[in-house]
Structures are given as structure tokens and as C-alpha cells.
Nucleic acid binder design. Structure first.
Length: 616
RNA sequence: GCCACCUUAGCUCAGUUGGUUAGAGCAUCAGUUUUGUAAACUGAGGGUCGUCGGUUCGAAUCCGACAGGUGGCUCCA
């Protein structure tokens, strides 16, 4: 039943794309159409009004009103077919050059090609893929479109919708092509479903990491420093340090050793690795004022690490050699690609590289996958694993055979570890395939966090070797891995995931003491408790301000401090403390009292164990 | 980089069709108060309305450029 509903919703959304096109054609005659597929929660249509006209969001009211007319008329969606050549003639006649291009592709290749997510959308082959004879069309009133369908029966049957936003989109996803205007709408079967969805978006905005970053005083961005260059406050720096420490700890358990490399290097390093060729437009360049040296801010760390490996002759007995470095890399990202902490120009990676023998690959990958699974279980985030393969473009280094076997090895590792996965071509690094851990943010956008990458190319280009058992020189394999990925990006997702309610082990402020009054005895007592908690390694603060207890409690709640303890005469007399526990941590029991030693000891232990619920 | 939109105190926002010294709440500071689990009272300071240029007798308001931001597209080692 659910399937049938999904199919019906899909048909509604697709039909709404046509209805929107119908409306736009009435409002802007002569508009050229691109494609108009269904996407998650709705639909879009790409349109080109020519050089002199642009749709803006102010036009939505007008378009929606026109769409309402089409819906009210309740005209049928009529399907019909034409031979390809007649269809091409139709496109020429109708002055729809984009449709004509699609039809020509269909005729020539039997498909509208490639990477386009909407291959299915673009019109269809009614016979077999090799013999394109007829293509199907749908017509609703005065609008006719090349389309595979299916649609609802008539324009009246489309549920609830709302136009959301407008964006530029390159024709067929290629930067070199004309840019069209993409108009997005959301659509649901009922008004209620639509309201629920819009409400969810509203809620998601409240937990946006940029908003929480400001409210909880975690990071700041300054125009004087520049865009994409966030700075972390004392509180935000606690988050960075805690998650990085966890990530390091997981790998140090598996024999990784910390290394350190400088942040600038001669560009020769990247010419050798192959990065210069591929990424030279996105490197920050630095010039020495004394010598003629042209230096590069490091955009990644693997080439540096190969230099440490290569600094000594290595024996098969030394392998695997495992390096770990949490360090900041610099990439000159295009301005339009920057956003919050997701995409920055100074990104900190918890980077690591294994140099190992062929027969050690499996074990090493298993260790890394186990570490990734453990980390994401502790932070409570559900991940999808993407196997990122190459496509048949020439953007990759290394032989086809090597690629085929390393892709197979990664898949085998993922299957053996029973991870939920999907495969995608064209997502690999230029030097090798990847296992990418994907996570979804508050409004449903998917980001890569952890990654494990197999690399035969850089060992070759850097001429890495080790002495094998038989005394011959052999080439090691590199396995790149970051568990958090970019710490900035990880935090952006983690802040949204927790809505700022960090578990004790990451909470910037774990305990806050609130004094009932400002009398000497109270202040002194609070000071003693603070010192005791600090001895146990807790991050604690005291609020002695001249405000009502209620107001100070509220301030602690707003700051999402896990444990708040009010101290006054009662505590000074009895010695026992009653913590106020943040809602998400508490198990459903009435508040209990503890000695200071017990209370702080338990909290310190929870932090150490990285638990997500309190035992208090 | 491209497309659309946005930018008023530290924060969240008002500011009618361009018309005297640009407002509020929170936050900050001062005074009163000495507080018992989500906001005590009174007062004060704080803004060249993102920047620069233009139109106008007059610009927060209209136009342009630039910067920064948001949502997409492209890219992501």
C-alpha cells in the first residue's frame, strides 16, 4: 500500500512540475524549458527566459496563482507518442532548443546520457534501448512536454504544494553550458503533510549550527579575517579538542604514531604527488620575500607523510607504518561554495596514513572501519557508507586493473564488516577509490565525514619502497583515513545532531554552580566546590552574580549546561548537593542528593567513559 | 566562479508611499535588592542603518559597484 501511495505522490509531484511549466509558459511566452524532475519532497523545473528576463521569488505569488488556475481547470494529462524525427521537428517548431538537444541524443545514443540524475525524466524509449523509434509526450491543456510519465489523470489531482526558492543551474550540470533558472517546489498529498514538512524545516532552522554556534558562543567569523575562516572561542575549542582526542585515541589503539608537518611547502611536493596538476587553482600560494621560493599552503598531508616514510630505508618487518596528524589544511575554495562550518578555507583534518604490504591491507582497513563505527556509535550518529568509485573519465591516475582490484578490495571490506552501503561512480579521489561515511544534516543535506582511501598511485609517484623478505625492493600501499573528516564539518553536523545539548564528555561547561546569595560564606563554599571539581578534571564554573536564583537557573538552561547545582545555606550546612540535570541526560527519577565527592566523581567518570546518559 | 535573495545596537527584530534628534526586547554597565531551581526593580551607555559612489532640497528607505551572508548550481584531494 505504501508503495502505491509513494507512486501516487511521485506522479503528483511530477505533474506539478508540468503545471508550473504551464503557468510559466502563460506568464512568459517564449520560455525555453530544460528538465523538470521529481526530487525529495517536491519537484523543480529548469527554465530559460532569455537574456532580458529573470524570474525572482517575488514572482512566486503570480506563478502560484496561475498554477491554481490550471489546477482549477482540471484538464486531463494526455499521453501520446511520436517517432523521434517528428519529435525533433516538434521541438524545432516549438523553439525548444534544450528539448531538441535531448531528442537528438536520444536518437543518436538511445539515451539522454551520462551523469544527469534525470536520465529517466528526459523522455523515454518506448521500444528497446538500441532501437529508438517513438518517444512519449504529455499534454495538459496548452502545454506539451517530452516526458516519460507517469502523471495523475488530470491537473486537479495534485495535492498541496508551495514554491520554495529559485536557483541557478547549469544546463546538464555542466559549468560551461548556459545557466538556467531552477524553480523548486515542495508538494505533498495533503495540506496537513505540507504543513508538517514546513514546520519541520522551521524546527531545523532552530538547530542550525551557525545559529547555535553564536548562541552557545562556540565560534565566530570576522570580516577582517575573511570568509570561510572561522575562529573558535574557548567553548568551541573544547569541542574541537575533545572530538579530536577521541579520534586520535581510537587510532593510537591500533598503533598509529603522531607526526607533525609544516603548513607550507615547495610546490615540487605536489607536482610529484599529482595534486598540483589537478588542484593548482585551489591552492594558496606564498612567496618568500628573501629567496625566490614559491611556496604553497598545504591543502592535504599525504605527500608530507610520504617524506617521513621515505626518510629511512624500510623493511617488510617495519610495516605497517602508521602516521597520525590532526592538522589544518588550506584550500582556496570558490566563494560561492563556502558555508558555515561545512565548507571552509582552513579545515582541520584528523588525518592518518598507513604504509603497508599488500597482504596487510585487509587487516588495516578493518581496524579503521571498526574505529569509524565506534566513533559514530558514541556520538550517536547514523551513517550511510558510500563506496566511491572512479568513472571512465581521464581524471584518474593509475592503471585500470589496479583500480578494478582496489575497488573490489574496498567493497569486500565493507561487506565483511556488514556496513550498510551504496556505490557511486565518479566520487573517487584521483589516486584511488574511497569508503566514505555519509551523514545527513538537520535539513536533509548529505555530507561526507569519515573516509578510508586506498592508494597505489602516490607510493608509485614518490617511489616509496621497502625491502621484502627475499631482499628485493617492493612498493608499499597507502591507506588514507580521517575519522572525523574535517573537524569543522564534523562539528557543524554534530551541533545540529545534538541541538547543542552536548553529552558530558564534550560539553564545554560540564557543571555550573549557582550561588543563592553573595554572602562571604556562600562564595567561599562555592569556591571550594569548584576547586574540588577541577581537581577531578571537570570543566566547571560558578555563577555568583547578583541575580535571582531563577534567572541564573534560566541562564544555565539556555547555555545547555548538563549539571547545575544551587548552593546556599542548606548545602553549607548539610554538605550534600542536589544536581539539576539537563532533560535529555536524566533517567526518570526524582532528584537525589550526593556528597560533593560522589557527585563530581560520578560526573568525571561519565565524561571519561563518554556516556550519553547520566547515572545520577 | 554563476543565479536568486538578504545585510538597521553584542543578539533578535520594528521603522508607514524618501521628510525633524532611528525605536523595542534581551544582553551590558550602575544603583536598589541578598535572592532556593526557567527572566527582581529603577536608571544609563550603546547605531556615520554593511562599505563606497550616485539621484534628490532631503536617503536606513530609490539606483549602481563592492564586501559579507543564505539557498541552489558547479567543484570538493
Amino acid at each position: 500500500m505504501a508503495d502505491q501511495n509513494d507512486d501516487n505522490l511521485h506522479a503528483m509531484r511530477h505533474s506539478l512540475a508540468h503545471i508550473m511549466a504551464t503557468a510559466i509558459q502563460r506568464l512568459w511566452p517564449g520560455v525555453k524549458f530544460g528538465v523538470g524532475p521529481v526530487v525529495e519532497n517536491g519537484f523543480y523545473y529548469d527554465v530559460d527566459l532569455g537574456p532580458d528576463a529573470k524570474i525572482s521569488e517575488d514572482d512566486f505569488e503570480k506563478i502560484e496563482a496561475e498554477m491554481a488556475e490550471v489546477i482549477k481547470d482540471n484538464v486531463p494529462f494526455e499521453r501520446f507518442e511520436k517517432p523521434v524525427d517528428e519529435a525533433i521537428a516538434w521541438a524545432q517548431e516549438a523553439e525548444q532548443p534544450y528539448k531538441e538537444e535531448l531528442l537528438n541524443d536520444l536518437k543518436r545514443a538511445g539515451t539522454t546520457v551520462a551523469k544527469d540524475l534525470d536520465a529517466a525524466e528526459l523522455g523515454t524509449i518506448t521500444e528497446s534501448a538500441s532501437a529508438v523509434e517513438n518517444v512519449s509526450f504529455y499534454k495538459d491543456g496548452d502545454f506539451t512536454d517530452l516526458c516519460r510519465g507517469p502523471h495523475v489523470e488530470s491537473t486537479g489531482q495534485v495535492g498541496a504544494f508551495k514554491l520554495m526558492r529559485i536557483a541557478g543551474a547549469y544546463w546538464r550540470g555542466n559549468e560551461k553550458n548556459a545557466q538556467m533558472q531552477r524553480i523548486y517546489g515542495v508538494a505533498f498529498a495533503t495540506d496537513k503533510d505540507l504543513r508538517v514538512y514546513l514546520n519541520m524545516l522551521e524546527e531545523a532552522r532552530k538547530r542550525d549550527h551557525r545559529k547555535l554556534g553564536q548562541e552557545l558562543d562556540l565560534f565566530v567569523i570576522s570580516d577582517l579575517v575573511g570568509s570561510g575562516l572561522p575562529m573558535f572561542t574557548p567553548r568551541g575549542t573544547v569541542l574541537r579538542d575533545e572530538v579530536a582526542a577521541f579520534s586520535n585515541e581510537l587510532r593510537q589503539r591500533h598503533g598509529f604514531q603522531k607526526v607533525w608537518t609544516p603548513h607550507i611547502t615547495k610546490k615540487d611536493l605536489y607536482e610529484t604527488s599529482g595534486h598540483w596538476d589537478k588542484f593548482k587553482d585551489q591552492l594558496f600560494l606564498v612567496t618568500s620575500q628573501e629567496t625566490s621560493d614559491e611556496l604553497v599552503m598545504k591543502p592535504m598531508n599525504c605527500p608530507h607523510h610520504t617524506r617521513i616514510y621515505a626518510s629511512q630505508p624500510r623493511s617488510y618487518r617495519d610495516l605497517p607504518i602508521r602516521y597520525l596528524e590532526t592538522t589544518t589544511d588550506y584550500r582556496d575554495e570558490k566563494t560561492g561554495e563556502l558555508g558555515g562550518l561545512n565548507r571552509v578555507r582552513a579545515l582541520t583534518q584528523d588525518d592518518s596514513h598507513v604504509f603497508c604490504r599488500q597482504d596487510q591491507i585487509e587487516q588495516e582497513i578493518n581496524n579503521l572501519l571498526a574505529s569509524a563505527s565506534e566513533l559514530y556509535a558514541v556520538v550517536g550518529m547514523d551513517l550511510r557508507v558510500r563506496l566511491s568509485y572512479r568513472d571512465d573519465s581521464d581524471a584518474y591516475l593509475g592503471s585500470q586493473e589496479l583500480w578494478a582490484s582496489s575497488q573490489a578490495q574496498l567493497k569486500q571490506a565493507v561487506v565483511a564488516n556488514e556496513l550498510k552501503y551504496f556505490e557511486e561512480e565518479g566520487e573517487a579521489a584521483f589516486y584511488g577509490p574511497k569508503i566514505d561515511f555519509m551523514v545527513t544534516d538537520a535539513i536533509g543535506r548529505e555530507f561526507q565525514v569519515a573516509t578510508v582511501q586506498l592508494d597505489f598511485v602516490q607510493p608509485d609517484r614518490f617511489g616509496l619502497e621497502f625491502a621484502a623478505e627475499d631482499g628485493s625492493q617492493s612498493q608499499p600501499v597507502m591507506i588514507h583515513c580521517a575519522l572525523l573528516g574535517s573537524i569543522e564539518r564534523f562539528l557543524s553536523v554534530y551541533i545540529e545532531h545534538t541541538a547543542g545539548k552536548f553529552p558530558v564528555w564534550v560539553a564545554p561547561e560540564q557543571v555550573r554552580l549557582i550561588s543563592v546569595n553573595q554572602e562571604d560564606a556562600t562564595v567561599e563554599f562555592a569556591g571550594k566546590l569548584e576547586a574540588l571539581a577541577k581537581d577531578k578534571g571537570l570543566r566547571i564554573s560558578v555563577d555568583n552574580s547578583n541575580e535571582s536564583v531563577g534567572k541564573k537557573i534560566r541562564a544555565a538552561e539556555v547555555a545547555k549546561v548538563p549539571y547545575t547545582v544551587v548552593v546556599g545555606e542548606k548545602e553549607i550546612g548539610g554538605g550534600e548537593l542536589t544536581p539539576r540535570i539537563r532533560g535529555d541526560l536524566a533517567v526518570q527519577e526524582p532528584a537525589k542528593s550526593y556528597t560533593a565527592d560522589e557527585l563530581f566523581g560520578t560526573i568525571a567518570n561519565e565524561a571519561k567513559m563518554r556516556v550519553s546518559k547520566t547515572s545520577l
